[in-house]
Design a protein around this nucleic acid. Structure first.
Length: 118
DNA sequence: GCCCTGACCGCCA
DNA sequence: ATGGCGGCCAGGG
């Protein structure tokens, strides 16, 4: 499990409640290769329902040293959120296809989506 | 506290 | 399918 030291005002850190970023990173970390999850799903699985945007934020600020499978997170409906012409978009599509996920028109196949329940 | 800015989401014309 | 829009929720200035 990817972990990073993060301190808060009180010095003690326990739950997702106090450390949403860590919770979100953990979830992303657990998306199996070849499968994809949406920002909303990731947030919900991290115990932060309704905070899809924070899932995006978490990924944006994630330390590179965590080596998170960020490419396995897409927007609602399986859409790659980056502008089609952007570097990130191409990179994400490349990484996904590399692990067997079909990507057409910036959209992954529905069967690749996972609810992340368990 | 107010305002703006997003790696978001879902509804609707 | 597609752009628009309001709703949502953190961060940062």
């Amino acid at each position: 499990m990817a972990r990073i030291r993060v301190s808060n005002r009180r010095g003690l850190i326990r739950s997702a409640e106090e450390q949403p970023l860590q919770a979100l990173w953990d979830v992303v970390c657990n998306i199996p290769a070849g499968r994809v999850a949406t920002y909303g799903t990731v947030a919900r699985a991290a115990g932060l329902p309704g905070r899809a945007r924070q899932a995006g934020f978490a990924l944006r600020v994630a330390p590179a040293t965590l080596h998170l499978p960020w490419h396995r997170v897409v927007g609602a409906g399986g859409r790659i959120v980056f502008p089609p012409s952007s570097r990130s978009h191409r990179e994400q599509a490349r990484l996904l296809r590399a692990e067997g996920v079909k990507v057409t028109n910036g959209r992954v196949t529905r069967s690749a989506l996972t609810d992340l329940e368990l």
